[in-house]
């Protein structure tokens, strides 16, 4: 493996200082399942890694009915995947977590790490955006909270400034009138990156769709919302014709590229198929 220096931070302040002081080739080291691969395959030039896993207070998972689900930066995908609360209240998150890498990878990889890597195909991002999640950011001068939908600026790029560190994510509470789904489409079921990922989170009231968020993965420079498709669905009973028209609209709203995993045309078609299917699956919560 290409050589790098390993630093262990005991506090957020120390980690932040190391990030600013050690120069551009310094990276936070959390689960490491992406970073170590990038170092080994020489995809990223790394001189220093700053291990944050000893920092106290970043491993907690909490849930309450007003604030929702909050988990710290060190919480692994596997821990959340196996939580009864996630299985019951957030089937969309559960589907995304259980489809990421392998069990071995999920025992190391963190959700915050997957989010901060900012890959357009990251499985955890679409359902978190559809749920309206917020991300907590530490800096040495202040803390800020940013809607996850505004966190990404491009593939691998976020609003994080040098020395800023994500400490956790909050997902709003899941009410009894909520339906959620995440569908991942790949060439195989396990150990696969998404060709297309579609997340739908909706709420129903008196048989009508109160609110809906659609988030599309791997069909743009960042995970995208489909605002026009969403507008077509709000206030309707989500009948088959309306859903079909909205799914067609979502196909227009995405901006896929062709690459080794699929062509742009195929991805666009799959957005149409999966958007309809995800809405149907989200509605199963009310069946």
């Amino acid at each position: 493996m290409r050589r790098f220096e390993y630093h262990r931070a005991d506090t957020l302040e120390q980690a932040s200082r190391l990030l600013t002081d050690l120069g551009d080739d310094t990276f936070l080291f959390n689960g490491g399942t992406d970073l170590l691969v990038e170092i080994r395959e020489r995809l990223r030039r790394v001189r220093h890694v700053v291990d944050i896993k000893q920092i106290p207070g970043l491993s907690d998972i909490t849930y309450d009915e007003t604030r929702g689900l909050t988990f710290g930066a060190l919480v692994t995908v596997g821990r959340l995947e196996n939580l009864a609360l996630v299985r019951q209240r957030y089937p969309n998150l559960r589907a995304a977590f259980a489809s990421l890498g392998s069990i071995q990878v999920r025992n190391r990889a963190t959700v915050v790490g997957n989010v901060c890597r900012a890959s357009p195909s990251a499985d955890t991002i679409p359902p978190l955006i559809a749920d309206g999640a917020f991300i907590h950011i530490y800096s040495r001068t202040n803390m800020r909270v940013v809607p996850l939908a505004e966190f990404f600026t491009g593939p691998g790029k976020t609003v994080l400034a040098k020395g800023e560190i994500v400490t956790g994510i909050t997902v709003p509470p899941a009410g009894d009138n909520a339906g959620k789904a995440y569908l991942k489409h790949g060439r195989r079921k396990a150990m696969e990156l998404s060709t297309v990922g579609v997340a739908v989170s909706l709420t129903m009231e008196d048989g009508l769709c109160n609110d809906i968020r659609i988030a599309l993965g791997a069909v743009g420079a960042t995970v995208l919302r489909a605002p026009e498709a969403e507008a077509m669905l709000r206030g309707t009973a989500l009948d088959a014709v309306t859903v079909k028209n909205a799914a067609d609209k979502a196909m227009e709203e995405c901006t896929p590229i062709s690459n080794v995993r699929a062509s742009a045309d195929y991805r666009r078609d799959m957005v149409g198929v999966l958007t309809g299917r995800a809405i149907k699956q989200a509605l199963e919560a009310f069946a």
Partner: peptide, 10 residues
């Protein structure tokens, strides 16, 4: 107690 890939851990 948890299985991991030894190649992805320092």
């Amino acid at each position: 107690g948890e299985p991991v890939n030894a190649c992805l851990m320092l």
